Simulated scan of single mutants.
Amino acid sequence: MILLLAALAAASGPGDSSLIEAERALRSGRTVQAREMIGAAVASGGEGPKVERLLADLALAEHRWAEASARYAAVIAGGDPSATVLEKAGMAALQANDIARAVDLLDRAVRAEGASWRAWNARGVAADRQSDWLAADRAYDNGLAASPGNPTLLNNLGWSLLLRGRWEEAVEALSQAAALAPGQPRIAANLDLARAAVSEHLPRRRPEEEPATYAARLNDAGVVALRQGKTVKAAGAFAEALAESDRWFVRAANNLALAEGS
């Protein structure tokens, strides 16, 4: 038994146990522990592709988008063009606002074996930022085929439809998302915005909602109304946003001047 353990230890590289713990920590969202474990692995001589990928994963988890994008580029160049790495690299590039690179990586990710709904979702978001609605529809359709009833996909599809002015369809998609994930503030806010677009009424303030949050929603509702040509409704939304929060004064004031000028 002692000889077997010794043989297993010899077969393992320097810092392998720390790297395994780092992977577990990252999967659980424990980034501080992951950073410590990666550091321990490097200190004990660990190096190579596994370390580089974990450092990229850590940068992604900590929202250091530019660093994550650069590290994933090195991992891919080093010979790991797997669907998971391409997906994460595309997401990092997307968050870093490098849309062209994100599209290239995500297109490669969705063509790779083992592509997940997250890759399709990110591809849809990238398409939305380019106003490429055909690509967006294809991405969200494929994502929902891979993960039916996924509230994240339905929310992003709803937002995509809002961007195109397809208000009723946006309400339908966002209503499904809200029913599946009732505790998600972003989904609830997007649904409120879609409902405001098809209603003559402005969004109502929720119980215990902060003035700045409500002012932001009013400002968004005003932007939608202005896009619809409903200048009176838009002006009312911007004026109410001004009354609710000083934080939104400049943006709402500029929008109000635009609405009144119209």
Rank of each mutant, 00 (worst) to 15 (best):
G149L: 13
G229K: 05
A59W: 12
R227P: 00
G222D: 06
Q95H: 14
L5D: 10
L55V: 11
M1W: 13
Q176E: 13
L106D: 01
M91H: 10
A6Y: 06
G165K: 11
P211E: 04
S175L: 05
L242T: 01
K230C: 07
A56E: 07
N156A: 05
P81G: 10
V232Y: 12
P203Q: 05
Q130A: 13
A66N: 10
A102K: 10
A259K: 10
A40V: 01
L4V: 15
G39I: 02
D132R: 04
Y72N: 07
W167L: 01
S28Q: 15
G261L: 10
D141E: 14
M1F: 13
P151R: 09
N97D: 13
R138H: 08
D192M: 06
L60Y: 15
A112C: 09
A253R: 08
P207M: 10
A102D: 09
L5M: 10
E52C: 02
R108K: 13
S147F: 07
R138P: 01
A40C: 04
P14T: 06
A135E: 12
A221G: 06
K50E: 14
L106N: 02
L191W: 03
L134R: 15
T152P: 00
W159I: 07
L193P: 00
Q176G: 01
R206W: 00
R166H: 12
A83F: 04
G39E: 01
Q184H: 12
R123P: 06
L86N: 01
A74W: 08
L162K: 01
R27K: 12
R27C: 01
G143N: 09
T231I: 14
G124Q: 07
V250W: 13
A11E: 10
A239Q: 15
L191E: 03
D107H: 06
E23C: 02
L174Q: 00
D57A: 13
P207S: 12
A40N: 11
S17N: 11
R138K: 11
V85P: 04
R35Y: 00
T231V: 14
A61L: 11
L193R: 04
E172H: 05
G29T: 11
T152F: 08
I38P: 00
A119T: 05
P203M: 05
G46W: 04
N97Y: 06
G79M: 10
Q33G: 05
A253I: 02
F238V: 04
L202K: 12
D80L: 08
P182G: 12
